[in-house]
Simulated scan of single mutants.
Amino acid sequence: MLIASRLARTTVIVGVNLLAKLIGLTRIILFFCRSEPAREKCLGDQKDLIMKKGRYFALRKGRTSLSGQYYHLIFSVKQRRPIFTDFIRARYLVHLMHRVDMQARAITLSYVVMPDHVHWLIKLNADSVSAVVQRLKSFYTKFEGENIWNKGFNDHGIRSDESLINVARYIVANPLRAGLVDNIGEYPHWDSVWLE
Rank of each mutant, 00 (worst) to 15 (best):
N166C: 09
L96G: 06
C33P: 12
R81Q: 15
S130F: 02
S128C: 06
L19I: 11
E196Q: 12
I3R: 09
A58Q: 09
L96Y: 05
D45I: 15
L164R: 11
C33G: 05
L66P: 13
A178Q: 08
A106I: 06
T64A: 14
Q103M: 01
I74P: 00
A178S: 12
H119Q: 04
A178C: 08
L195N: 10
T26V: 06
I148G: 10
A20C: 06
W190Q: 10
Q79W: 08
D86T: 02
K53Q: 15
L93Y: 03
M51D: 03
S76C: 09
T141H: 03
W149F: 10
H119N: 02
I148V: 15
S35Q: 07
F57C: 15
R6V: 13
V132G: 04
R39M: 07
V113Q: 00
L164D: 10
V16L: 11
L43D: 05
L7A: 04
L49W: 07
A20I: 05
Q69C: 06
D161N: 07
L124T: 15
S128E: 02
L22Q: 15
I83R: 04
G145E: 00
H98Y: 08
S65F: 04
P175N: 07
L121C: 04
N166R: 11
K61R: 10
S192Y: 00
T85L: 06
I29C: 04
G157H: 06
N183G: 04
V172H: 01
I148L: 08
A20D: 05
E186M: 12
S138L: 05
R91A: 11
V129S: 01
L49F: 12
I50G: 04
I83F: 01
S35V: 13
K53C: 13
G152A: 09
A58M: 05
G15Y: 03
N17C: 12
W120F: 08
H189G: 04
Y140M: 12
D101P: 00
D155K: 02
D116L: 10
Y140W: 10
A173G: 06
R159W: 00
R34V: 00
H189N: 14
P188S: 03
N174C: 13
I88E: 13
F31S: 13
G24T: 08
D45E: 15
L164P: 08
R105C: 01
I158R: 01
L176P: 13
V100H: 00
L43V: 05
N17G: 14
M114P: 11
K137P: 07
P175L: 13
V172W: 01
Q103H: 02
K61A: 02
Y92V: 14
A106P: 00
W149Y: 11
A126S: 14
R9A: 15
Y71C: 14
M51A: 03
L30G: 03
A104P: 11
Y140E: 11
T64P: 05
H72G: 06
H98G: 13
I158Y: 03
P37V: 03
T108V: 07
Y71P: 10
K41N: 03
W194H: 12
R81T: 08
D191N: 11
R159N: 11
E196G: 13
C42S: 15
C42E: 10
K78R: 15
A173N: 09
L176H: 01
